[in-house]
Each structure stands twice: as C-alpha cells, then as structure tokens.
C-alpha cells in the first residue's frame, strides 16, 4: 500500500518580527522522528518539529493530512483511540511525554486544547468554566466565583 504523504506547513507568529531565528528560540515541544499508526494505516510520517515558547504556532494543511493527529499527540489524546501505535518521541520542556512515569492527566492539565467544535458539558456555564479548577481541587466558592467571573467578563482571549 502506498500512502501519499502530504506535508504540513507550519507557520509561527513571531513575537518580534525581525528577530525570528528558530534555532535560537527555546522550544516547548519537540518531536523526533515521530510516526503514528492507526492500526495498519500510518497517519504521521517521521515528524520532526520544534514549537517555540511564547509564540503562536499554526499547522496548515489539507484536510486529513494529520494536523489534528499531531496536535492530539501533544497531550496524548490519541491514547484514547484503540489500535494506536507510535514510534519516535515527543519532548515537552525536554522531557519525553511517553515516558512510563508520566502522569497523563498531569500532562493534559498543562497542555491545553481547544476543539474544532465547542463541546460544553451538560452542566451550568459556571460549572463548565470552573471544571478545570475543580479538578485541581479548588472547591472554595469565593475563589471559583472570582475566577469564573473574571474569565467570563473580560475581553476574549487573543484580543488582548
């Protein structure tokens, strides 16, 4: 079976337009020869990429080329799919995220993700916004109130 490999182009929005030098940037994520298979089918072919810190990085490519798969690999969401097999490694801050000692929920806590479609939980908006905090054991009403209000009131993210 021949698989057509479609390249993903990576676009990085520089913090300082003039001084973009990928080599010098501190990278958050780094993948090394990363392959991913759904059963027999290979979805990612030898991905080597560095994602710099404090920048917005975008993956661009045709549909089905593996953008989401790569993204989902960063917080190991692909673990949830049956029959997934990976080769190579992904480093976060220099640490292998597939290391057996890694606590997946701790990883996911630190690697946030926004899905293509909004998927609110069937709870109140308050509970939806405060869900992550509650998971971390923040149950004090006053703190939750403040944070939720702050999150809902202020200007949407990205328009700062």
């Amino acid at each position: 079976m021949t698989t057509v490999q479609t390249p993903i182009s990576v676009s990085i929005a520089p913090m300082d337009k003039d001084n973009l030098d990928i080599g010098k940037e501190v990278s958050t994520f780094e993948t090394k020869n990363f392959n991913l298979f759904y059963g027999e089918k290979q979805a990612l072919h030898g991905v080597n990429i560095k994602i710099p810190e404090h920048r917005v990085t975008a993956f661009i490519g045709p549909s089905g080329c593996g953008k989401s798969t790569l993204l989902r690999s960063f917080n190991r969401m692909n673990d949830l799919v049956d029959n997934v097999r990976i080769e190579g490694e992904i480093l976060l801050g220099g640490k292998d995220i597939h290391h057996p000692k890694v606590d997946v929920s701790n990883l996911r806590r630190q690697v946030g993700m926004v899905f293509q479609r909004p998927n609110p939980f069937p709870k109140s908006i308050y509970e939806n916004v405060g869900y992550g905090l509650r998971l971390q054991g923040v149950n004090q009403r006053s703190i939750l109130d403040d944070k939720v209000e702050w999150a809902l009131k202020g200007p949407p993210c990205g328009t700062r």
Binding site: E53, G93, K101, D103, Q110, G112, V129, V148, P156
Partner: peptide
C-alpha cells in the same frame, strides 16, 4: 453561548498556564 464559554474558558486556562510557565518548566510526573 457555547462560543462565549469556550473562549472564556480558554482565557482562564491560559491565565493559569502563564502563571505556571513562569518557571518555564513542565512537570510531567506526579
């Protein structure tokens, strides 16, 4: 409202993220 919530949520998350990453050190272990 879903979108509102989504973006507010992301905002809250990135806020904490920034606070965490002051150390720029990701802690993956328990």
């Amino acid at each position: 409202w879903q979108d509102v919530h989504q973006s507010s949520f992301l905002k809250l998350w990135s806020h904490f993220q920034r606070r965490l990453s002051i150390m720029s050190d990701f802690n993956l272990y328990q």
